[in-house]
Write a protein that binds this DNA or RNA. Sequence first.
DNA 1: AAGGATGCTACACGCGTGTGTAGTCACCGT
DNA 2: ACGGTGACTACACACGCGTGTAGCATCCTT
Lengths: 229, 229
Amino acid sequence: MTGPDPDDLTARARIRDAALLHFGEHGFERATIRGIAETAGVSSGLVRHHFGSKQALREACDAHLVKLISRLNDQVRADPAPADVNYVAAARAAIGPYQRYLARALAEGGAAPLFDAMVRMSEPWLADADKSRDHTPDVDRTTRAAVTTAMALSVTVLHQHLSRVTGVEMFSPEGDLLLARALIDIYSHPMLSLEEAASIRAALDKVQSASPQADRESTPPRIKEHRDD
Amino acid sequence: MTGPDPDDLTARARIRDAALLHFGEHGFERATIRGIAETAGVSSGLVRHHFGSKQALREACDAHLVKLISRLNDQVRADPAPADVNYVAAARAAIGPYQRYLARALAEGGAAPLFDAMVRMSEPWLADADKSRDHTPDVDRTTRAAVTTAMALSVTVLHQHLSRVTGVEMFSPEGDLLLARALIDIYSHPMLSLEEAASIRAALDKVQSASPQADRESTPPRIKEHRDD
DNA sequence: AAGGATGCTACACGCGTGTGTAGTCACCGT
DNA sequence: ACGGTGACTACACACGCGTGTAGCATCCTT
């Protein structure tokens, strides 16, 4: 369940795992090398010995996660029965205790190769979906894949809020199930009809051609000020 | 464009704005009171004088943003022509320079009242959409609203990645436009057909009734280990 | 068996930081 | 005119932190 191993691993691996945990729990800045060392059951100096610096430790964490995820990706890719939405659930489950780290890393702009890999991973799937479309989409596939990926990851990144609002811890079997159902529902019911979409798109075109790049627009209401400064 | 004011505001307001900026740019921990004070053009002591502590300053920033957003919400709500997706664009535009702060705050679990407000804000819209559905959804509306909100916010939170992948800065007019088009496309084309959705749902039900709560499940493949620890 | 690399610890330094304290200046009510 | 309240500054303290250094034990190599 915990994955690979009891608690006897290489000290280096134990430190890395502890770092993943601490970084995820307290954030990079707030996490301390001493705290990580304590969790790993080693001295603080050993952390430096193995990783050189705190920043390097962070990068090692990123690298480890990337390796783990791409391994999972390959495995799913080789699977004969691609279970659509279960991609997400499976990924989240495999990441296991590292979800909080992943969330933070992504939110802070880190784990870029990981995000990129996920985008690449979702593109072929999107390509399949495109085949059954009437008109060709007016946004390139990569952009749509990126946005789609971001949306899929939002659940991980904003899990605290989802847990609070729904009253169900998202990083739990129960949460996984609720989430899966919600996603299936959302993914199978478009928020916009094709007519609405076309109408909005037309409005967008008009606005754009009116002021090609001049001032902001497409942002209808200017927020009104309130005297409290 | 910059919003309300030149650079002569109450010092308190200037400090708050500077804090919003610094927190957004460097993160809460990494941002320093001295740096904020310098940007605001005041002494570091004055920051403490007005806000008491760094944490309190952060809370003041949150409160300010909540007020700003709810003001915007009221305004959009009173608008006769609700422009669907433009909700997002309008909100993002109004938040203006604070988007980075917002992204960080949300990712770290803060700004809870703000997220909640957004969920409440999206529920009636979802209610409308539900009217034209054949079967009643098997997930309660609040949960779906929360997930939908999270997805909408993912663009803000993960803007760095989107900018990198697409090559277009997301917090720019150009990015707004690209994003709007992508969202329209995504929102108007379901990723799952109703049949696929039903099929996955059925699979989910089976799995769940097989092991009501026992072990994990719904997470098909266990990730295979690799010797490098 | 010598010798060197490696895993690991203990301890100390220095810097940046939030915070606390004292003091100055200006405005305002009475 | 005069106390007093609030905006604002300068300076110092203490602490936690990342980092550096020196040293010890263990194991592998030849």
